[in-house]
């Protein structure tokens, strides 16, 4: 067991910071735009690791000319504390693939909507135990009553809202009256 401060334990720290790590890909110029999208597909939402940032719909565009890369990212909520972490994770994933110093461009318009969560993303949310958002055409109107939210565990429509807000800004808290399990609902905005 290496002692604290000796060379073995210090060397274990090597590469913990992405920019200290040698990129695994020596020829990033060979990457296509589709490759970049595939890399981003591997970056998971830190709050909801079941889905990727691509499936969440927050990657709005990728601009790549073989040298310079700009990724347009939109936040889910103005105050989402995961926004900066997500940007860091994206930079890290790209850096590991050999793309140095990508630019993350934060775009606010058009504002993110849960309609941008992909169909696969919605299914993954459900499998993860989070009821996916309805589409905004079925969106509850201002001050209106909530729509029926199906329990992601047993599929029952007999559910009730416990709180407008759940464990993160993007979720609300529900309870299933059939299987009695509580669950998160990904709010529709």
């Amino acid at each position: 067991m290496p002692q604290h401060g000796d060379s073995a334990s210090l060397s274990a720290l090597d590469g913990l910071i992405a920019s200290d790590r040698a990129p695994t890909n020596a020829r990033p110029d060979l990457l296509t735009k589709d490759d970049i999208w595939a890399l981003l597909q591997e970056v998971k939402d830190p709050e909801v690791p079941a889905i990727s940032v691509v499936e969440l719909g927050i990657i709005r565009a990728v601009h790549w000319d073989g040298k310079e890369l700009t990724v347009d990212v939109t936040p889910t909520y103005s105050g989402c504390p995961a926004t900066e972490l997500i940007e860091e994770l994206i930079v890290e994933a790209l850096h590991d693939a050999g793309v140095r110093n990508p630019t993350i461009n934060q775009v606010l318009t058009p504002a993110w909507t849960t309609d941008w969560i992909t169909t696969e993303g919605k299914e993954k949310l459900r499998a993860f135990g989070i009821a996916p958002p309805e589409t905004s055409s079925g969106k509850m109107s201002l001050l209106g009553e909530s729509a029926v939210i199906a329990c992601p565990h047993c599929g029952s429509n007999d559910t009730e809202r416990v709180s407008e807000f759940g464990s993160t800004a993007c979720k609300a808290l529900y309870r299933c009256k059939e299987c009695l399990e509580p669950f998160d609902y990904f709010k529709c905005i």
Partner: peptide, 17 residues
């Protein structure tokens, strides 16, 4: 507890804005 989450999430939105 639910009310606390709601109040804090509202605060988070406001501070983000």
């Amino acid at each position: 507890l639910e009310e606390e989450m709601a109040l804090m999430n509202t605060a988070l939105d406001l501070i983000g804005q």
